[in-house]
């Protein structure tokens, strides 16, 4: 059994109900993803403190595309290359759009603007010891 390792540190939680990690301004309530606790990018509150928060695990599809050509490194492509879909998801409470891969078992033909999706985890790539995981968006019943 390989060890599950996040493909990027500190961007999301692991477990059964994974969530993306963002920073949030304590004065303005503005969200920032990826997380940055060093400074607020809201120009109305440049000195506000920031705290780490989990983003909503559910959102609605804003748009999507399926890539049919293998991208350059540092993408780690399957051999042979398999087309993959990137989804832009609107988070209602946060009023922002966040990108993520579509869970590979899902058919992009089922997507439309407004489709409800949920955050899951999946494999980005593997080596001999580890499985590197990344967040995925997956359609769910509303």
């Amino acid at each position: 059994m390989k060890t599950q390792v996040p493909a990027v540190d500190g961007w999301f939680t692991l477990g059964d109900s994974p969530a993306l990690l963002a920073s949030r301004g304590v004065e303005t309530g503005s969200y920032f993803f990826p997380k940055n606790l060093a400074f607020s990018r809201n120009p109305a509150a440049p000195t506000e403190e920031l705290t780490e928060v989990e983003l909503s695990r559910r959102g609605r599809v804003w748009s999507w595309t399926t890539n049919h050509y293998q991208p350059p490194a540092p993408y780690v492509a399957a051999d042979p290359f398999v087309p993959y879909t990137v989804v832009a998801v609107e988070l209602i409470d946060e009023q922002m759009v966040v990108l993520g891969p579509l869970a590979p078992e899902c058919d992009p033909k089922t997507l439309a603007v407004g489709t409800d999706v949920e955050l899951t985890l999946g494999t980005l790539y593997e080596d001999d010891d580890n499985e590197y995981v990344v967040w995925h968006w997956k359609p769910v019943a509303a």
């Binding site: 303005t28 503005s30 993803f33 409470d93 009023q95 922002m96 966040v98 990108l99």
Partner: peptide
């Protein structure tokens, strides 16, 4: 990876 948040 994300837009700015329009919250508030």
């Amino acid at each position: 990876f994300a837009t700015d948040s329009a919250f508030g």
